[in-house]
Computed example of a mutant assay.
Amino acid sequence: MKRILTDHISHSGMMYASDFKQWYTYLKRRLDNEWTTEELSFLLGKPSYYYTDFEKMYKVPNFLQKKAHF
C-alpha cells in the first residue's frame, strides 16, 4: 500500500486590488507595532486564527522576500 502524505498545507484564491490594499495595510501595521497575528485578529474583532489564515493564504514569507515596486 502506498503511503500518502497529508501534512502539507496548500491555499489558493484570488486577491483583488482592494483585498491587497487591506492585507498590506494590516501586515504593515502588524509589523510596525510588533503584534502577533492573534493580537491583530483580536483588534479586528475576529477569532484568533483569522489573520493567521489570511497570511497563510497569501504566502507572506514569499512576498516579503521579493522586492515590491509600487
Rank of each mutant, 00 (worst) to 15 (best):
R29I: 14
G13A: 10
R30E: 06
E34A: 11
P61K: 07
H69D: 10
P47N: 14
Q65S: 06
K2P: 14
V60N: 01
D7I: 06
D7L: 12
N62I: 02
S10C: 11
G45P: 01
I4H: 11
Y49M: 02
T36V: 00
W23H: 14
I4N: 11
Q22E: 08
F42T: 10
D32L: 09
K59G: 11
V60Q: 01
K67S: 11
P47R: 10
G13T: 05
D19T: 02
L5G: 10
D53T: 05
H11I: 13
S48Q: 13
L5H: 04
H8I: 14
E55S: 09
S48K: 05
N33G: 15
K46G: 00
E55T: 10
F63V: 06
F63N: 07
R30I: 03
H8P: 12
D19F: 03
S10I: 14
S41H: 06
S12Q: 15
R3A: 14
R3C: 15
E55K: 08
F54I: 04
Y24G: 13
Y51A: 05
W23I: 11
F63H: 03
F70N: 11
K67D: 03
H69T: 06
M1K: 14
F42W: 09
S12E: 14
M15K: 03
F70T: 09
D19L: 00
T6N: 06
T52Y: 07
N62S: 04
S10H: 15
I4D: 13
Q65W: 09
Y50A: 01
A17Q: 04
K56T: 09
L44T: 06
Y58I: 10
L27S: 01
I9K: 12
T37F: 02
T52C: 05
K28P: 13
K56C: 05
A68I: 01
T37Q: 06
K66L: 05
Q22Y: 08
F70L: 10
K2G: 13
H11R: 15
K56Y: 08
R29D: 14
L44C: 09
M14Y: 12
Y49P: 00
G13D: 05
T52E: 09
G13P: 12
L43I: 10
A68R: 08
K56P: 12
K67R: 05
A17V: 03
F70M: 05
M15Q: 01
N62F: 10
W35P: 00
K67F: 04
